[in-house]
Every structure is written in structure tokens, then in C-alpha cells.
Design a protein around this nucleic acid. Structure first.
Lengths: 162, 162
DNA sequence: TACTTAACCTAGCAAATTAGTCAACTATCC
DNA sequence: GGATAGTTGACTAATTTGCTAGGTTAAGTA
């Protein structure tokens, strides 16, 4: 189990997709502009997500991507592992240095820990996050009513992502 | 919060250190050979761990490294963050200046998730893992007594890493 | 049928990170 | 003084990341 920016991009994109694809498919171009991720990079991530059976692509005009099952049935661990290639058969996998010695034991320990993290992330679905997302959005809308200049804030936000 | 092989090496080495430094300091050479991690790479990792105040180096003959506090007081999140450099203080800075924009909302979501993972790992100390370590070791000893063929165990171990 | 849209695919590339080596130090103990 | 052992820094090779550029294929629509 690894946690890198790649996995983060995938989760972010999947959240965006889950949020916007209630009715129609969502194009990667839309996600790319909303989340400021490069289109080609998104395409690569979604190629993996598609192979993992989490999203389905719809070609042609009006096409795009949609979740292949409900957001509550897609957990974060799945998304991350779909894009992260999960190799890492390091060390004691190859040679026969994996006797009943300490190396193997501590390695086992780490694998156990890794499993626990995976288990934790498996317990969180896109749907779970969406709920929080929605709550937060409502909260922010209320802030908007307080007459804060949106354009100024958007500008600041976008420049921060460059 | 990131999870890479770097952090794994650090945790593995710290576990080894915690296990072997009950009385005397442990040299990095020992850890390197036991855990099959390159000595120089270990030196780099321990330079950071030392700066983070988790280990203390003892120079001269009979020297080595030892934990600067009890294993039960060092948690996994600390170890990982000590070596992982945790830059990426996230584009839109922790401030609430980036609101009303979807990119920032999902960003917040991810940060929250990251915090939860960190919190989870903070709840696990080296001491906790050592206990399990001991339990497992005893279990393996018992297996040995039961004359289980060791080769079979090696196979199992290896298949787990594939 | 031609055109457009957008998924899908391939190759490559610069920057960053990983995982390491090598060599020159400095401190400590016998 | 000499061996042991930690400290530091510079350097490197391989891999991964994030991204660009270009093409192909399938599906709508004019």
C-alpha cells in the first residue's frame, strides 16, 4: 500500500466524477479543468481505473465517463491500488534469505501494518466522502451569502495551483 | 502524509533497533545486514531520525544507535514523517482563503483523509508492533517444535510477496 | 456520408525521487 | 597512535511522476 500524489489525483478525480455524473457521463476535459489536472494524465489514470472496472467510458458526443457502480460501493483503497501499480515484492521475495530470521519477521510486521491501512481505506467509500463534501459545500454557500467577492477568491485559488 | 518504501525502510529499521537495543547501542552495520538495507541509505535515514530526536547516536567503539525514548512512546506516523520530508504543504496553503471552488473542496477532503491516516498511524507505537513481533516469533518457534518443514514456510513467505 | 466529439492509445520527455556508492572527515576507546 | 564507529557531503544510476504531443477508433448529428 502506497500513498502518493498519483493516488491523490485519482481519488480527487473519482470524487469529482461521482459528484457530477449523477445523470450524464462526465468528460475528462471537464474534470481536468475543474480539478486542474492535465487531460492526458487523467486519461492515463482513467485507463487504469477502467481496467479495474470502476468506471465505464461512453464514446462519441455527449459521452464521457461514469462510475460503473454506486459511489457507496467504491472504496478509496480500490482507487489508489488501481492506479498505483502495487509492485514492491522487495527483499526477501527473491532469494532464500527469508528463513526464520528477523528480516522476514519485521517484513511481515510491515506487511501487517500495510494491511491495516488498506483495511482502513477500504472502509471509506466515495459515497462517504461525497456526503461530507455536500455538507461542506452547503456551508460554503452560506459563506457566499455573506457577500464575499468570489472572483477575487477564485483568482487567488487558481494562481495557487499553478 | 505519504507512504513510500522510504518510510517502510525507516519503520523496519526502527523496529530492528527497538528490538535489539534493549541493553547496548546497535550499529547501523548490524541493522543493514539483518534487514538487507544499504548502510549508506540507512545513514541518511538515521540522520533524519536523529534530527527528529527519536534516536541518539553513540560514537566510538561499542557505539551505535539507540532509541531516545521508550518504544511505546514512538509512533509509526512520527517515524514516517521524520524521513519523508512532507513538503507539498499543499498548493492552496492550509488557510481558508480558497473557498467556493470545487478544486479546493476535494482538496480539503483529501487532506482530511490524510489526517485520518496520520491519526491512525499515530495510535500505533513501535512497542505495539514489538509485542506482536514477539507473539509471532513465539508462534513460529512452536511451529518449529511441531516439526513443520521450514521450506514450506519459506514458500509461503515468498508467495506473500509476489 | 461527412463531420464532430470524446474516449482510447502510444511514445517520449523533463523533473523529481529512490536507492545507492564513495570518500573524507571526526570522535572515542584501547 | 591505531582501530573502531559515527557524520557528512558529493555524486550517480535507475525508476517514477507528471505531463505533452500526436494519433486512432467509436458513436452520435447535420
Amino acid at each position: 500500500m502506497r500513498l502518493t500524489t498519483k493516488g491523490r489525483y485519482a481519488v480527487t478525480a473519482m470524487l469529482d466524477l461521482a459528484f457530477h455524473s449523477q445523470k450524464n457521463p462526465v468528460t475528462l476535459t471537464d474534470i481536468a479543468t475543474r480539478q486542474t489536472i492535465s487531460l492526458s494524465y487523467l486519461e492515463q489514470l482513467f485507463a487504469r481505473l477502467r481496467k479495474a472496472g470502476m468506471v465505464t467510458g461512453v464514446r462519441g458526443p455527449g459521452g464521457g465517463y461514469k462510475l460503473s457502480r454506486d459511489a457507496s460501493l467504491i472504496n478509496i483503497a480500490d482507487v489508489i491500488e488501481a492506479v498505483d501499480e502495487q509492485l514492491d515484492s522487495t527483499k526477501c521475495g527473491g532469494e532464500a534469505n527469508c528463513q526464520n530470521n528477523k528480516a522476514c519477521l519485521t517484513h511481515d510486521l510491515w506487511m501487517g501494518l500495510s494491511d491495516q491501512i488498506r483495511g482502513y481505506l477500504q472502509g471509506i467509500s466515495l459515497g462517504d466522502l461525497l456526503e461530507k463534501h455536500h455538507v461542506k459545500e452547503v456551508a460554503k454557500r452560506q459563506e457566499m451569502d455573506a457577500k464575499v467577492i468570489e472572483l477575487h477568491r477564485m483568482d487567488r485559488c487558481q494562481s495557487l495551483y499553478k
